[in-house]
Design a protein around this nucleic acid. Structure first.
Length: 174
DNA sequence: GTTGAGCGTT
């Protein structure tokens, strides 16, 4: 089933810590893989959902990316741009790989961005690096949202200079 | 020196 990394993250993070304080991520991964593997759900009756989706429509495949830009979350605070770059380098040509760091504290915020040359490389890297270990933390790869669509919208054109002369034009016809 | 929600600077 197609599970958004965000949702997964929420569930994992909000869930109470396991008894083992050591391998928290391992259990998470195992749970993730187990859920997708165990398709032997004893359903007494046919699931209505399957009929809704119709035949031919498979939910197992995730929708393709719309941009070669990926949003990496779950990074360790020790992870830097270089580590991220080295981690996503063998999956394609990285046009840009940067870990977002707070300008005040100067440390990584825990997420970063990677941009590939083509969507194929991005998809490959995403499917290959999604829910993988990096610096001891499980990272999640998701399509990045556009930072700013239109930075400078210019609705006005002729009202450049402060229009005070317009008053004269009106003419109060007195 | 560090523990966890989220989308970056030019």
């Amino acid at each position: 089933m197609a599970l958004s990394s965000s949702l997964l993250r929420r569930l994992l993070r909000s869930s109470t810590p396991v008894s083992s304080s050591s391998s928290t991520a391992s259990s998470i991964l195992r749970a993730t893989f187990c859920s997708s593997s165990s398709s032997s759900a004893p359903s007494p009756t046919e699931s209505p959902l399957s009929s809704v989706f119709g035949d031919g429509a498979e939910v197992s495949n995730v929708p393709p990316l719309t941009a070669p830009k990926l949003f990496i979350s779950g990074l360790s605070r020790l992870t830097t741009d270089e580590k991220l770059k080295n981690a996503f380098a063998p999956f394609g040509q990285l046009l840009e790989a940067k870990v977002i760091t707070d300008r005040i504290s100067g440390r990584s915020k825990g997420f970063g961005f990677v941009r590939y040359a083509t969507l194929e490389e991005a998809e490959n890297a995403r499917q290959e690096m999604n829910a993988k270990f990096l610096d001891g933390w499980v990272i999640f790869v998701d399509p990045a949202k556009p930072r700013q669509q239109k930075p400078a919208p210019r609705p006005d054109t002729d009202s450049s200079h402060t229009g005070f002369t317009t008053n004269k034009t009106v003419g109060w016809c007195g």
